[in-house]
Amino acid sequence: MNEKDFEKIYALMECAFPIEEVRPRENAKAQLKDPHYTIWISKNEADQILGFIAEWDLGSNIFLEHFAVDQTLRSAGIGSRMMAAYLAQVAKPVVIEVEDEKTEINIRRIGFYQRLGFYLSEYGYDQPVMRGDISKKISLKMMTYPAPLTAAGFETFKQQVFTQIYKTIKE
């Protein structure tokens, strides 16, 4: 991603995720300078942003912090194609977070990732709130690709994500 696309990506992020899961604009823009953070963008022939994948390279694995498709383009297979293309080129195991609450949308989201080859684990944690209602609890479970998550793998991932990523959250 180049910086000129930041505002469009940030607007898409704010539409696709609850406020508690999106950093304040200044913090989100500042993290673009982190060499471990990358945003991959999918565009059409008209240079319209279709969606994006935001990743953190944690060394032993890749953490996908955000993945979204423009809401006006959903259900057209764009997300599946984007993620399949991403997974075909990634060289490390991939970890994502999904909401643990059993709602219809969360169950559908988990099914989407499972169809792409992700495994739902029993391991999870409460994500720190990035902004908004700091008393809100965001309970998450981990999904991994291409293999299931082990207890040791979860402990390593959790230590990495809380020391390398969530430490950057500021009110």
Rank of each mutant, 00 (worst) to 15 (best):
E65F: 00
Q164I: 00
I78T: 02
A76D: 10
T168K: 13
G77S: 11
D34L: 08
I49H: 08
L12Y: 10
G77H: 07
F6Y: 14
I107H: 08
E101P: 00
P35R: 11
F154Y: 14
F6R: 10
E7K: 02
Y10I: 06
M1F: 12
I62H: 03
Q71H: 10
A16W: 01
I19E: 14
P148Y: 10
A46R: 11
E99H: 03
G79D: 09
I105Y: 06
I78F: 07
D34M: 05
W40A: 09
S75T: 11
E155T: 09
T150P: 03
K4D: 13
E20W: 02
N106H: 10
H36M: 08
V22W: 01
Y145W: 15
A46F: 05
A54L: 01
E65R: 00
G153D: 09
R74P: 04
T163V: 03
G59C: 03
R74G: 07
G51T: 12
V94R: 02
F157D: 03
I9N: 06
D57W: 04
R131F: 05
A151Q: 14
A11T: 14
E171T: 11
G51I: 11
P128L: 04
Q114F: 05
A16L: 03
E26G: 12
K43G: 08
Q114D: 04
L140I: 06
R115T: 04
I107P: 01
I169C: 09
L120D: 01
Y119A: 04
V98Q: 03
P24E: 15
V94H: 07
D34E: 14
M143I: 09
Y86H: 11
K141Q: 11
L73F: 11
A85M: 00
E14G: 05
A76K: 15
N106Q: 07
M143D: 10
G153T: 02
Y86D: 09
P148C: 09
I165H: 12
A28E: 15
Q127E: 09
E97M: 00
P128Q: 06
I165L: 15
Y37V: 14
V161P: 00
F112H: 08
S75N: 14
E99N: 12
Y86K: 01
D34K: 02
F112N: 09
E14Q: 15
K33A: 15
D100Q: 12
I96D: 06
L87E: 04
M1K: 13
Y123V: 01
A54V: 02
T168G: 06
A88Q: 13
K141M: 08
A88T: 07
T103P: 05
E14M: 15
V22D: 13
F6A: 13
T38L: 12
